[in-house]
Design a protein around this nucleic acid. Sequence first.
DNA 1: AGCACGCCGACT
DNA 2: GTCGGCGTGCTC
Length: 802
Amino acid sequence: MLIAQVIVDVPTNQTNHTFDYLIPPPLEDIVEKGMRVSVPFGPRKVMGFVLDVVSQSEWDKLKDIDEVLDIHPILTEELLELGKWISEQTTSFYIQTFQAMLPQVLKASYKKEIEALTEVDLSPAFQQLFAGRAVIDYQEFIERNGDHKQLLEEVNQGHLHINYIVKSKETNKTKTFVAPNKDLLILEEAIEDISARAKKQKEIIEYFIQYPEPIEKQELFKKLQTTSSTVNQLIKKDLLKTVEKKVYRDPFQAEHFQRTEPLPLSKQQQEALDPIHQAIDQAENEVFLLHGVTGSGKTEVYLQAIAKVIEQGQEAIVLVPEISLTPQMVQRFKGRFGSQVAVLHSALSPGEKFDEWTKIHKKEVKVVVGARSAIFAPFENIGIIIIDEEHETSYKQDEQPRYHAREIAKWRGTFHHCPIVLGSATPMLESYARAKKGVYHLLNMPDRMNNTEMPPVEVVDMRDELHAGNRSMFSRRLLEAIQTRIDRGEQVVLFLNRRGYSTFVMCRECGEVMKCPNCDIALTYHKSSHQLKCHYCDYQVPMVKECTSCGSNTIRYFGTGTQKVEESLKEHIPEATVIRMDVDTTRRKGSHKRLLEQFGQGKAQILLGTQMIAKGLDFANVTLVGVLAIDTMLHLPDFRSSEKTFQLLTQVSGRAGRHKLPGEVVIQTYTPEHYSIEYASQYNYQQFFSQEMEMRRSFGYPPYYYLTLITVTHANAFKAEEVTRTICKLLFKHLSPDARVLGPTPSPMVRINNRYRYQCMVKYKDEPNQRDIIRKIQQHYNEEVHRDNLTIQVDFEPYSFM
DNA sequence: AGCACGCCGACT
DNA sequence: GTCGGCGTGCTC
């Protein structure tokens, strides 16, 4: 008898191991590693992943697998191995990791129903509830206030039975096709019988005699200028039939991708591509860091590397930050490789994601372009993995399992013996340091295509503006520059990293700042809805007219949000049309794309936006980029804030003057002397790198030290702090003396959603036992986590410190 | 996570 | 004496 080792869909410490199940004879040839099954677990049924099939078990009373949920394994053996590794690296539950590798719709959904085994013996109450039906939803029983005790009694007496149903949520989209239901000869005869008045019916039959293949219903209607009533007549006569056929939801259906051919490479592109091609040829597991300035033509290098991989019959994964998975980017890959490309990103509906994933699973595509989770594409013969904008923090997942796509890429690269390419204009310090040490193979592309220069950057000191009596958010220099572009019919991109109208609202009388009652954070004013919103929880209230503290009506807005800038622009330059892009205006599906298209067609002169416009945009007519207030970013409580500022400024500057027209960049700041602003304005990555490395060394941050961040949350502040203190002590005691344990410290956001947050930070060089110690600490608090709603988050190599 | 089992207080 | 409250522990 064969035995399946199964990880069940119960994310707890006590169930974080495999459970053994017998494979009943009818399923013997079906069950395979990597499949999802439904298994009895205690009194109920749950979904589980088969990790292995073995012939022996240490347990004696094994239950049978209930049902198989997949025809083919949905996780390859490689992904099963990888999943185990990630779970151990991130101290996550196995089940969480496997779920993270798959599209949402492959998660199980659970249902309970009550079945009546008898009609006559049932108590009157239940007879009434069932009302003649054999089965009712458990949910219905609850909603009608069913008596739980009576239910159990009936179950014990054998009158009722509770069914636990495990289902996969995926659905296949089908379309209705119409096809002939009879031999063509019979159809020809049938035409004679059709009434002479039924001209359309005859036409349809004649069509099918000529083209007997099934045709989609809607298409048939269009082709023959008819409707379902006519077709239905023929179906009634048994001459035609309908067939349901599975179709892929195609998110790019309406788009035509202009086929592109490989472009001739510049010298520096060729020099970057050669070693990559060589690594592909020789199946070398090498990590390349492609350091290319914005506009240096990195994408063309990727495309030609992929072309070679496809030529060799292998597959390619391309990761792109979520935010820059723009239509322009998709266009380039689809244009070169056509239907061999699957695209995975968050703007797709769950069904569309599943369909794109299915194409990969069925090996119908050779290339996947996607955000973070596309790193788990179930390919089996990977020839290259490319991570574009490798410094982007969105490659780190901010929930369990807290993996970094770069590390997963390296693991898979080792498995498949294939090269990894990390591309960026502003590599992460850690990556560049590795490249300098020779751990990564550094490839440089210092020049822009067509020898265009990076646009000159002017840094405007906003303190001077204030002294000169300019209290607006635009410096005189920037306004003048915008005006010039508008007059010349050119376009402007304005960047601001704050959405909403104002960052906070304060009473001038007493200084009270309107705060979220759950989060200890200032509320943001949204003018369009006239609401105060918390960006950390869902709290929102109508804008207050009087101070909640002193009752005065001297409420003032401080700071600047995108909405406010938009309004102010209209005052200063009324003739300009503005397109605003932030989370609020791009929430609806497709709006992101639509707004960019409008801007591309010149329907507006100014594009104003947050982070999302910093990357990947390429509009020939944009000759001015303005950065309104970079200081908020510079002063975030994050040791990477300088690096992030430098990266962002470089990124944004790259949006200007990419083509024939020369560009210009204006950065407004209150701290023009800061090195990240100074070096960004000079496009001097090397100098920034050295100075930032010096800072990291002296403060003991990556890449000199590794970090682990433990965040404890609890409804009670004292409790949260006390647990954190104990954890710090335990870590200090068990880690090596070289490790530095900092804390307990209140998190930069002490309270979110009425829960207090305290942190412990570990800085270390080498702590092989660290994960074991942390696992033990987690187990120690297991009960309290369970009982007392305590949470302990562990983040290895964190990217966010909030 | 669910669900059963079991041990204590307030009731017909 | 019983009903039902929730704390505790298990699920192959």
